[in-house]
Design a binder for these strands. Sequence first.
RNA 1: GCCGAAAUAGCUCAAUUGGUAGAGCAACUGAUUUGUAAUCAGUAGGUUACGGGUUCAAGUCCUGUUUUCGGCACCA
Length: 587
Amino acid sequence: MINIKENEHLSIMNHSCAHLLAQAVKHIYPNALFWVGPVIEEGFYYDIDLGDETLTEEALEKIEREMKKIAKDGKRIVREEISKADALEKFANDPYKVDLISRMDEDEQVISCYTQGDFTDLCRGPHLESVKELKFFKLIKFSGAYWKGDAKNKMLQRIYGVCFENEEDLNAHLAELEEAKERDHRKIGKEQELYMNHELVGAGMPLWLPNGSIIRKQLENYIYEKEQKLGYDHVYTPCVGTVDLYKTSGHWDHYKENMFPMMKVDEEEFVLRPMNCPHHMLIFKNKMHSYRDLPVRIGEFATDFRYEASGAVKGLERVRCMCQNDAHLFVTPEQIGEEFKKVVSLILDVYRDFGLQNYKFRLSLRDPEDKEKYFDDDQMWNEAEAKLREVLNELGVEYFEAVGEAAFYGPKLDVEVKPAVGPEVTLSTCQLDFLLPRRFELSYINSKGEKETPVVLHRAIFGTFDRFTAFIIEETKGRFPTWLSPVQVKVIPVNAEFQGDYGKEIKDYLAENGIRVELDDRNEKLGYRLREAQTQKVPYTLILGDAEKENNTISYRLHGEKDTTTLPKEEFLKMLKEEIESKSLRK
RNA sequence: GCCGAAAUAGCUCAAUUGGUAGAGCAACUGAUUUGUAAUCAGUAGGUUACGGGUUCAAGUCCUGUUUUCGGCACCA
């Protein structure tokens, strides 16, 4: 997908198109007031106050027609510079413009306006020469959006659109949007029976169906093995904790709003846990630790519950019940860098195994101005942030910094990915924590025989199994590598009557050797059964006729390919097993 | 949570201004016995998400709830 914001000409074009949109809206809704209309990666939008009016699909079409009309008329776009005082006077009746102008820098005394025909908008520019250059655009969608992005403010109407230089690019873009819907994990999840939801179970509470459960189990086994080799100790802990546990950790004060409400049993107060840190802190505290034991790495596939806003839940990506691929690493201050490095290396290793390339590392730092949101210890923050940067540079990892995105208790490194539909989400995370060990009064004995407080690294490589599965579905478009495929082999005898027994024999042979195999000996034509195997995206389809039966061979066809290969069954099994064990990616 | 939209058979969708809820696929039964993406015929399948209201009459209009979708906000 073309990133419009990064292409200078397209960027200018889309910005001018945003103005064209505003002009058209003004023609149809004379009382409309305009906030801002920036260019974004996928095009542009404009935030508009329409008073009591609400938009509809029809209104959007009408606006688009009006835009075409204005563009065809072909007025020039004229820049004019006026003083701040003049601007305030000119836009005196527009509270949004007054707000914008009055918040501009003191030294910015000249303000630019752009006029096209009967419409003038405050704007830094630059713009196209004329609106007649705008020919290939489309309004995509509309929605509400809070003024200044603050939920305490009034909600404006936001219209999204996109503009290109020619029809081909526009059509290609629209086709890509359609294609994205096709690989949406919610669509594939339903088609391939990976998971379901039910309103009686509740929003954001997915039920993993047998097919999805196979994938999840494979992911669990995969990461468990990796973590074992890296010295992690896996544990099981309860999904509930007392309120006091979360008061001790501090989550009760900072996170209560996002937890399911407290439940009272007799006189005790419990909550469903939203994270596992407190439990793992107590496991660390269960015995004395020497500096020689550290790092201690406690891992768990832990089910957590978070009361996500109703408007936020989405498929397997944003849920209220999730399973974290969680671990807490207890380290000495000196070990922070080395251990952080190991985590980042593990992330890179895993992403390589899955062939993932479209992700970004985000180093989330505190906003030093915001004393409310962040644990107050300047030295701790500065040292920790410097340490993380140092390791990332050492590893040569590309990353960007996000001020104000850190957790309350420390800086973190997140991996951001873009789902088929919707904004970016965090997959992997590694967070530094100086606070929780203190709150739980954790200690280890250092080399001088003194008690010292360890530092904790929270980390989740897959993030949650739910979200990672969603992402893998979209990355593979439902064509999972063989090791993850719910069904790895489909056996189809040409004729059930003549080769049915042979089909059963082959199926049993593969199943006994640990292959996930299904036999389709229904009384249907070969083409019909083959088609179904293809639409289900089964990696290997075996076709067994008289020739195969006589020679004790199998003929296989790879998903998406037309030709078949004939092999003795032992050779096929050997090949398949190698592919599965090496976790090969699909070509 | 907020601004909008939507919910009809297992799935994908129809159903003029309010006037007998249909189709394709899937399922089931039978015929057909198949060599690389859909064989034919028949059968069954619904309190139109759930509650309340308006009306002679509601899938359709009003209203509450739930869920879903597009965004926004949130994401210790």
